[in-house]
Structure formats: structure tokens, C-alpha cells
């Protein structure tokens, strides 16, 4: 192996997105566009539409440097597809000082800085791009994964060229969608604003800023606190659906109208998220409402609701209806 290759830097990139936004595809496009050995992988979680996900990319001319199948803990570049993630997830964790944080947002830089400052990030450069609006204009829907790559191109021209990225997109998508994406990407670099870090920080491609054993997540309960039978008792395991606002993922929500409810209980059984609230009245369980924090708006309950005739008009009304959230 030549010495040049041994000296080749290793670029590490992390994407944060929500299930369905295409963070995994973005990572794959990076790997395809790079001229040399490249690997990428998603985080391993429950990939439901809307849940926070991440994906990782490793690029280097030296195969041995990217041979590892570890996740990326110490990225030089982080791209965030959805700015609501900034407050949910520590997007700057392990970032290399002097690295670039690229965010799809329409918020001003001061607000972004304030949100991320609670995680004490190192001195990093921040690039902001309102990719959602460009996506709506060019693609007709809010899929920003290819556009964020355009912004990445602006801050990290050493990774790949716009031609290489276009080739990767042409390989990956069907021709019609590929063309739309390529047209959109062209306007991205000019629409991206870069806010440099304070002071002259030199970026390192060698040093690893991973906190030792961070991947084992020492703050969670351990073997000693684990319950017999391996059950996830909610009083012990910090997690479960209680704290996850899945209701924020949907565009509509079920609304309950007690006057038309015959208490058949059909809705209780079809709800995939146990969102039909019940109370025990005189020894009988009665439907009393909808848990809006968790209702994703699938509409199953509305479909099975038999409803009840209105006494005055004789018209039939359902006890559950879908209403759009604005």
C-alpha cells in the first residue's frame, strides 16, 4: 500500500432524521458518491414513521480505516433533517471540534445556538438551510434528504463533487424523481448560510472524541436493578411509550362525542396504540375519551364505530370522528 493512501483522512458523518425522512438513503448516497471505500449504516431501533433515527457514514481512501463495522461516535460532519430533533436528541454528541453541523431549519441562528448549547457542544461551525421549502417547491413533498447533501457539499467539498452526487442519485432513484432531486440540489449551496465557529479551530481526522463506554449508556439501569423474568416494568425501566409523544407524528387526531356512543367497545380493540381512554363506572368499563398524546390518527376507531341515531333529526352520527390538526 502506498504511503499516500495510509495518510488518507477518514471522514465520519452522522445524519439525524425522523423515520420516513430518508436519513438512511442520504447516508447511502454519500457512500455511493465518494470515490473510494465507503460504508454506511442505520441506527438499530424501532424504525417507525416519525421516530428519531440516525445513520452513519465512513469514508476513506484507505479501506483499513473504514473496515470497522462500528457505528460513528465522533463525526466531523452532522446533518440534521428535522430541527425538532435538536431538542429531543443530542445531535452534537462526540463531534470533532471544528466540525460542521448542518441543519434543515427556518429558525434564526441565535435560536439554534441556544437549543444546542444545553448539550455543551465543542467549537463547531453551523450551516443552516431551509430545505423544506425548496423540497416543497421542487419535489412537491417534504423529503429533504438529498437537499441536505447539497448543503453538505458546500461545507465539505472534499467529500464529493456535485457530479458524483448526481450520478449516485441517478443510480438510486427512478429517472423522473432523480431529475427533480438534481434540479433542487443545484439551488441548495447558494441558499445555505454558514456560521463559522469562534476562533480558528483546526479539524482533526484522526482523533477520536468518543467518551469511553458511552455506547453502553451507563446512565440506564444495570444487571442488579433488572427484574426477575426480564420484564420491562415501567417503574424500573425509563422508557416505554408513556413519554413518547407519538401524537405529534400524525396530521389528524380522533375526537370523541359521548352523546353518540353506545359503549360497544369496538374502538378499544382496534386501536393499535391503546388510545381509547376508559374508566370503570358501576363495575363496568366505559369509553370516556381519546388519548391525544399518543393518537397517531390512523382512523381505525372511526371505521369500526357503529354510531347512534340522533333522536331529533334521525340522522346517524359516529361517536368518533377524525379532525385535522392545524
Amino acid at each position: 500500500m502506498s504511503d499516500d493512501i495510509k495518510k488518507a483522512p477518514r471522514y465520519l458523518i452522522r445524519f439525524h432524521g425522523r423515520g420516513g425522512q430518508g436519513a438512511v438513503t442520504a447516508a447511502q448516497l454519500c457512500a455511493m458518491a465518494f470515490n473510494g471505500p465507503a460504508t454506511c449504516m442505520p441506527t438499530f431501533g424501532a424504525e417507525r414513521m416519525g421516530s428519531p433515527v440516525a445513520s452513519f457514514v465512513k469514508l476513506s481512501k484507505d479501506f483499513e480505516k473504514v473496515r470497522t463495522n462500528e457505528q460513528v461516535y465522533s463525526p466531523q460532519y452532522v446533518a440534521v433533517l428535522d430541527d425538532t430533533l435538536l431538542s429531543d436528541v443530542d445531535c452534537t454528541a462526540g463531534m470533532v471540534p471544528g466540525g460542521y453541523l448542518v441543519i434543515n431549519t427556518c429558525r434564526p441562528i441565535e435560536e439554534v445556538r441556544e437549543i444546542i448549547s444545553k448539550n455543551n457542544p465543542p467549537a463547531i461551525n453551523i450551516a443552516l438551510i431551509d430545505a423544506t421549502n425548496i423540497a416543497l417547491e421542487y419535489l412537491g413533498r417534504n423529503i429533504t434528504n438529498t437537499l441536505i447533501l447539497g448543503a453538505l457539499l458546500k461545507v465539505a467539498p472534499e467529500l464529493f463533487t456535485i457530479e458524483q452526487l448526481s450520478d449516485a442519485i441517478a443510480d438510486q432513484f427512478n429517472p423522473k424523481i432523480a431529475q427533480k432531486n438534481m434540479d433542487a440540489i443545484k439551488v441548495v449551496p447558494d441558499a445555505t448560510t454558514v456560521y463559522p465557529a469562534d476562533g480558528d479551530v483546526k479539524i482533526s481526522y484522526e482523533t477520536d472524541y468518543k467518551k469511553q463506554w458511552s455506547h453502553v449508556k451507563p446512565d440506564l439501569i444495570g444487571v442488579k436493578e433488572w427484574d426477575l423474568a426480564g420484564v420491562w416494568y415501567v417503574d424500573k425501566v425509563d422508557g416505554g411509550s408513556k413519554r413518547v409523544n407519538t401524537g405529534a407524528w400524525g396530521v389528524s387526531v380522533a375526537q370523541y362525542h359521548p352523546e353518540y356512543c353506545i359503549q360497544c367497545g369496538n374502538c378499544v380493540f382496534v386501536c393499535p396504540d391503546f388510545c381509547i381512554l376508559r374508566e370503570e363506572v358501576d363495575g363496568k368499563w366505559q369509553v370516556v375519551g381519546v388519548d391525544e398524546f399518543h393518537c397517531k390518527g390512523c382512523g381505525n376507531c372511526v371505521a369500526v364505530c357503529p354510531g347512534k341515531k340522533d333522536k331529533e333529526t334521525g340522522e346517524k352520527h359516529k361517536a368518533l370522528t377524525m379532525v385535522m390538526k392545524c
Partner: peptide, 9 residues
């Protein structure tokens, strides 16, 4: 690479 208890490996 296992947690024995909270904060302890």
C-alpha cells in the same frame, strides 16, 4: 460491555 448497575459497568 454490560451495566452492573446505574453508572457502573
Amino acid at each position: 460491555g454490560v451495566r452492573e448497575s446505574k453508572g457502573k459497568l
